[in-house]
Amino acid sequence: MAVQILRDSSRAAVQKVVLGATKDQGGTRSHTIVVGGDAALPFHHFEGEIVNRPVIGMEVQDIVPDWPEALKNPFADVINEPGRWAQKCVDEYGADLIYLKLDGADPEGANHSVDQCVATVKEVLQAVGVPLVVVGCGDVEKDHEVLEAVAEAAAGENLLLGNAEQENYKSLTAACMVHKHNIIARSPLDINICKQLNILINEMNLPLDHIVIDPSIGGLGYGIEYAFSIMERMRLGALQGDKMLSMPVICTIGSEAWRSKEATAPVSEYPGWGKETDRGILWEAVTAAALLQAGAHILLMRHPEAVARVKENINQLMVSNAY
């Protein structure tokens, strides 16, 4: 007797979110990118259509970041110029998106003015044609000002702006609504808060297809399993028709992976661990590979070699296994 293979069919699919806007659409991007739309568990092509491939946004900062040498090296020639840095990511390393982190705005750090931040965003917009993810420095007050100004200056570009959090989502949501951008709703590895935040944002009338979930992942060895199970629950919720859990998921892979001791400790200290350059790249790539399986849609990454490996992984995963 032939083996009967059971297939789960889903009642609903992950929300599609469009990033960027071309000239016709009121922006200046060369093309747009659509994330989400999956009608099955990650890469279960045999159970439902995986319409859009996961994408990689490479990180660019508006200051020279405090990164290990191994990570700064590939960008050594452009690290002072966010525009050229972004260009290199797209042209040489094939970034799908640019993830512009405005850490320079931090009042405790470089304390860039709002105008400086806006100028950086414009510089990057000019330098590349891919859609942009723009995130503030994390200082609540400063981010209010900076992100509102960015939203206004880049009106029509359909950016992905972050981060909205439960205690602090109103001003960014309002800015995204007025100037037509998408929002990153960040919750602290908590399915309830994740959902609540989506409800709160949606109740301010930002449509569901303008929200992307950041579940606050941990890197490999640093709580990745919590992120994995939260993301699994989100996807299962989305497939069962829970609209408030159905948004695409964005993961801060690069920053989490490169925070780990394993990624950065010098080989002189741990001779048994091998070369730190290889280690960091692998740490980032493996973190990304694991979370792809959990349902990540947008991977925010740093090292070009890690990006290359993950792209290869995505290519393989996107080969249909339908039968």
Binding site: Q166, E167, K170, Q196, I199, L200, E203
Partner: peptide, 8 residues
Amino acid sequence: DRTGNFQE
């Protein structure tokens, strides 16, 4: 709001 936080 729905979390019980006071709004401005």
